[in-house]
Design a binder for these strands. Structure first.
Length: 321
RNA sequence: CCCGCCUUAGCUCAAUUGGCAGAGCGUCGGACUGUAGAUCCGAAUGUUGCUGGUUCAAGUCCGGCAGGCGGGACCA
């Protein structure tokens, strides 16, 4: 595959690559590693899936993929006891495989290396380089809502920076909420004498309630292994203003999960409302914006299609028990 | 270690001299729209931080403990 088409695969659907020039330099390397970290979560949802799909793209682009199951980070973010978190990290690894990551992708449990002496020493060095304000700011969209802030909150981003060093990554991937931590890494790793990774950021999926971010801690997500009737129910309940194509969670789901794999979407609707349609994404957006496609017809079609697309994921997870 | 203040529904907070523990927001349900939301109705929700005591009766008074906030002390 030539550099241009590889670059296109990598950039597709991302909000930014920091920086494209550095990415090009990485692409000519023989051995190159891309990484993303996840706090283990009881539910892996469509927001996670967007980034997993990007990791699959990176495998195709010749990167070795490392997935950090960030159990210690989750612990520092108040998600529960380390034991509980470790348990669900196994489940999460299965979910990521179910979404199509190859057997070559490596899963690494954070606590397996994050307490080593030289790791800890690096965290201390970073602690001295980083202002409290910046560390806190980097956590703005990540910290669990809390009135009383723990010191853990500022250890978290420092560890994430050191992770990139220890996992020897050329490229770090994350949703846009990871941006400030990534920038911290890019500023400070060179100060410790190490190269900074290229960073790639994917868009955040709006919650089904229309809020800024799909999140497992707010009941506004669709899990990748939700049963068909659950998916349908959640989509029916979703925020979906007529004619509004910006920040519309249903159209976003269609974009990221349906039109990423299919060219057209069949919309079944009663004759009295105009009859069935067979649309490209472009046509669908135009009709919707013009008010020629009713939200309920959109929802029904997107729900059916999403149920279909996630079927292999559900089957994989059922069989792996 | 010492002193003071705080802790009531998922969240923010009310509750008179000790007298049936409430509101707003959120959640859920119904109406209205061929979706959701908005709007209008309606409903549910509590070990009043934990613990011991006083009292016919304690969210309220007294003691102990825990957590939080603020201050003080210690600083060879």
């Amino acid at each position: 595959m030539d550099i241009d088409s590889t670059t296109n695969i990598i950039k597709k659907g991302t909000l930014e690559v920091v920086t494209p020039e550095e990415l090009n330099k990485k692409l000519v390397k023989n051995q190159k590693t891309a990484y993303i970290g996840y706090e283990p979560s009881g539910k892996v949802h469509l927001g996670h899936a967007i980034t997993v799909k990007k990791m699959i793209d990176l495998e195709k682009a010749g990167f070795k993929v490392k997935i950090l199951l960030a159990d210690l980070h989750a612990y520092l973010n108040g998600k529960g006891s380390l034991e509980e978190i470790k348990e669900i990290s196994d489940y999460n690894a299965k979910c990521f495989r179910a979404l199509g990551l190859s057997e070559d992708a490596k899963f690494i449990l954070g606590s397996s290396f994050q307490t080593q002496e030289d790791y800890t020493m690096k965290v201390y060095q970073l602690a001295l380089l980083t202002t409290l304000t910046r560390a806190k700011r980097s956590m703005a969209q990540i910290t669990r809502d809390a009135e009383d802030h723990q010191v853990a909150e500022v250890i978290y981003p420092l560890m994430q920076v050191v992770d990139m060093l220890f996992l020897d990554v050329d490229l770090a991937v994350g949703g846009m909420e990871q941006r400030k931590i990534h920038m911290l890494a890019r500023d400070n790793l060179p100060k410790l004498g190490f190269p900074a990774p290229v960073c790639i950021h994917t868009p955040l999926l709006h919650g089904t309630d229309g809020s800024d971010k799909m999140s497992s801690s707010k009941e506004n997500f669709i899990a990748i292994d939700d049963e068909p009737n659950v998916i349908k129910k959640k989509i029916k309940k979703s925020y979906c203003p007529a004619g509004e194509i910006e920040g519309n969670p249903i159209l976003e789901i269609a974009h990221h999960f349906i039109f990423s794999e299919r060219d057209r979407l069949v919309i079944e609707r009663p004759d009295k409302f105009g009859g069935n349609l067979d649309l490209t994404q472009e046509e669908l957006l135009k009709m919707y914006e013009n008010g020629d496609l009713h939200p309920l017809d959109l929802k029904n079609s997107v729900a059916d299609c999403l149920v279909d697309i996630l079927e292999p994921v559900r089957n994989y997870l059922k069989e792996s028990h």
